[in-house]
């Protein structure tokens, strides 16, 4: 049976749209699956994503890239910031229910100690999953950020 890991992730980025710059923070969850030929990352929120790689890091990077490309596609068609925010929020909110069931099952295994987490950090809190989208009006160097590391939900 393939090893599965319930991950929580945060992606922070800025997206250029038609006449605006949006600051986006995606606080999502995904199921990481180790298979014979490599790793797959399946989205729970947002649920319409899957990406693979030879190792976990590559699959995670590919997942991030795919998610950003979906947001770029939304931005290219949205005529204004408010439409972009509405469509991106809808995209994030479409939970993949079958993948969520597997994610919850994997989380139970983490709690039971039956999944080897290696050096990955655990997060036990029920942190809310959401997408935050703000229109950038002011610009300063302190607004530059990098993604926090993904954690295992426990």
């Amino acid at each position: 049976m393939a090893a599965t890991y319930p991950l929580l992730f945060t992606f922070l980025d800025k997206i250029e749209g038609n006449g605006y710059l949006a600051e986006v923070a995606v606080h999502g969850r995904l199921l990481a699956v180790q298979e014979d030929e490599g790793w797959w990352m399946y989205g729970v929120n947002p649920g319409g994503l899957a990406a693979s790689g030879k190792d976990r890091g590559q699959a995670y990077a590919e997942f991030r890239k795919t998610l950003m490309e979906v947001l770029f596609d939304i931005a290219s068609e949205a005529p204004d910031f408010y439409t972009f925010r509405k469509l991106a929020t809808k995209f994030f909110g479409e939970t993949n229910e079958p993948t969520l069931e597997e994610w919850e099952s994997a989380r139970q295994q983490v709690r039971a100690g039956s999944i080897d987490l290696g050096n990955m950090r655990r997060e036990t809190a029920e942190s809310p999953r959401r997408i935050d989208i703000k229109q950038k009006q002011k610009f300063a160097a302190k607004g530059n950020t990098t993604d926090p590391q993904a954690v295992v939900a426990a």
């Binding site: 989205g43 899957a50 693979s52 979906v70």
Partner: peptide
């Protein structure tokens, strides 16, 4: 919203649409 625009096929040779994409699309 994330079905790759590449060719169908097996993973060897880095075909762009893989079984995992289809599986997740069916669930979604």
């Amino acid at each position: 919203p994330s079905l790759p625009k590449g060719q169908h096929g097996k993973k060897k040779g880095r075909a762009m649409i893989e079984v995992g994409h289809i599986k997740q699309m069916i669930r979604q």
